[in-house]
Design a binder for these strands. Structure first.
Lengths: 151, 151
DNA sequence: AATTCATATACGTATAAACATATATGTTAA
DNA sequence: TTAACATATATGTTTATACGTATATGAATT
């Protein structure tokens, strides 16, 4: 016997999910696309259980979806949101994006994806595709050309 | 020694304020203009202390302002909101307005302002101006004409 | 000044939520 | 099968929050 969830219930749920700074920071990082848990943990410099718990909260609230890829789990903003919730979430991301501190954290994520010198915890983790592409565009790898020349 | 409030703090505060159904219902009623506390209590059919407490929460969060007029106190949406918060709140009101239950509650407020047969608790309370004007436009009073005719 | 009316706040209780630490669970490699 | 890696969940503690009931506070009337 499922309890019917009203729109007001949904509103309360969505705003409760947004009423926490750690969760806002998580949403900021996954603004462009899904991100692996280990990257959240690394960039936000928070404990793994804490990050995991907040991600679970966001998922239960319906704001994000998760996908497992072997040992790795990715979280991204849900593409099945109620239009109203989607609008509010867009507002949130814009508000976050207007803050230098949040912009900097997102840049740290980008840096973590592009840098070759990263902690072992994320060294082998699957990187967000869009950010990896940015790497290839911004920094063409010199190694392949050198090797080809030697051959 | 005031603690400096960051934008992330403000976001958390705003969304925490929105994360309660009673408070959402209150915002819905004051969407057009300020409303006297007694009308909130009457229309939402909730206890006075409960209403008062939630209004205080909204005021502390900066979403609403209050104004005393003798024995009566009016609450309305603040006109000094951060633009980002304002955008979110506008979308909240739109989300609320899309719900039949919320539309009906707002209509109850209008009815309470226009009806001549109301509980003594709000019979003498100052009515929201915009809604009163709507009364004059929508329902011209027949009594004044009858009285004038008798005279 | 006492009384009435309108609203704010106090008090006690129950529930929810955030957190650090510990541990369980799921996947992969050896 | 065991061990390593990545993530989810359990546990105990602290803090915040919502609520009903009671009371205090502020304004107006008598």
């Amino acid at each position: 016997m499922a309890v019917k969830k009203t729109k007001l219930d949904e509103m309360e749920t969505v705003f409760a999910a947004l009423a926490d700074q750690t969760r806002l920071r998580l949403l900021n990082l996954m603004r462009d696309e899904e991100v692996c848990v280990c990257f959240f943990t690394e960039v936000l410099n928070e404990s793994q259980p804490k990050i995991s718990r907040h991600l679970a909260y966001l998922r239960k609230a319906g704001l994000v979806d998760s996908r497992r890829e072997g040992k790795w789990v990715h979280y991204g903003i849900s593409d099945r949101l109620d239009p109203m919730a989607r609008t509010v979430l867009d507002n949130v991301l814009e508000w976050l994006g207007s803050q230098e501190v949040m912009t900097r954290e997102h840049e740290e994520l980008v840096a973590a994806c592009c840098s070759l010198d990263v902690p072992v915890t994320i060294a082998r983790a699957p990187k967000p595709e869009a950010l990896v592409e940015r790497e290839e565009i911004a920094r063409p790898k010199p190694e392949p050309e050198i090797e080809t020349y030697l051959l």
